[in-house]
Simulated scan of single mutants.
Amino acid sequence: MRVSQEEKSERSRTAILEAALRLFSKQGYRGTSIREIAAEAGLSTGNVYHHFPDKETLFTTLLGQYWEAIERPDFPFNKALAAGAFPFDLEALARAAEESVRTYRRHVILIYVDVVEFEGNHIRKFYTEMAGRFERFLNTRFPDGALKHELGEGFQPITASMLASRVFLQYFAVEILFGIPDQFGLDTATAMKEVSEILRHGMIHPPAPRKLEAEAR
């Protein structure tokens, strides 16, 4: 079966992106050359330049892959959110955060590469628009502000959902990318259970009834 030129071209492009992802996530942006990417992909440098005009375009294309992935319904974290993990089953949300970071480990590393080598220029817009993405999801999942009745008085759904997401994703970024297990001095399952309880109920006991009555007087 003959492979069309279009299929060959797409295979080359995929091989280039995969090679660039391996190298950028391992040795950084400036530490990686087009020549190395071509060799890693088993192609000529001319082939690389045929698909991508420069190295930065390759880098931004890889970041774009991750931005697209985290918008999809099948992204592990999104699946957990859609299944009601927030705010009712935060432990499930933690597990989904772990799966998300493990699955896209090399792409997540590129975020840190961008911060160190580009001062966050490529990821700034993405994070600036994050609240809007959470708001759209919440409006779809909990129409008419239904979620607000499930949260403590005065708590905004966007703030609560973004906080839970950041806590879990950052925890697993440290564990998986930096190789630091048990960073809270507890095994991961225990730590995530405790963090989930803190997010649900807060870390400070509510004032005793007598104290409240005294303050009221």
Rank of each mutant, 00 (worst) to 15 (best):
T188N: 05
V113A: 02
F88K: 13
I34H: 03
T32N: 05
L151I: 09
S33R: 13
A85F: 03
Q65V: 06
V3W: 10
A92W: 06
H201W: 12
K8V: 02
Q27D: 03
A191V: 09
S33K: 13
K26W: 03
L110D: 01
T32R: 01
I16K: 00
P157W: 01
E36D: 14
I180L: 15
E150W: 10
Y49I: 09
S196N: 04
L81D: 00
G42V: 08
V174D: 04
D187Q: 11
G185I: 13
T61P: 00
I109W: 07
A20T: 00
D144E: 15
G145V: 09
T140K: 14
D54H: 15
E6N: 09
E129D: 15
R72V: 00
T140R: 15
H149S: 15
T190V: 11
Q65S: 07
N78A: 07
V195M: 13
M130R: 14
L110A: 03
T190W: 04
K193H: 12
A214K: 11
H149Q: 15
E194G: 00
D144G: 14
T57S: 12
Q156K: 06
G42M: 04
T140Y: 12
Y112A: 09
F184T: 09
G132D: 12
I204E: 10
K148E: 07
A191S: 14
E153I: 08
D182N: 15
G179I: 11
H205D: 11
S12I: 08
I70E: 04
E117L: 05
L21M: 06
S25L: 06
K193E: 13
A131C: 04
M130K: 12
T188H: 05
V167Y: 09
A85E: 03
R166G: 11
H149L: 13
Y127A: 08
M130S: 11
L147P: 00
E68C: 04
K55C: 09
E10H: 07
S12Y: 08
Q27E: 10
I176A: 01
H122Y: 15
L17E: 07
I198E: 07
T45G: 04
Y29T: 03
I111H: 14
F75R: 01
F134N: 03
Y112T: 08
I198W: 12
G132N: 10
L199N: 01
F75C: 04
S9K: 13
E56H: 08
Q27P: 01
M1F: 05
T103H: 02
S196I: 01
F142Y: 15
E153D: 06
T57C: 05
L90Y: 08
Q183R: 09
S12G: 02
V167Q: 06
E18G: 10
F118E: 07
G31M: 10
E56F: 06
L138F: 09
M162F: 04
I204G: 00
F118H: 15
K193G: 06
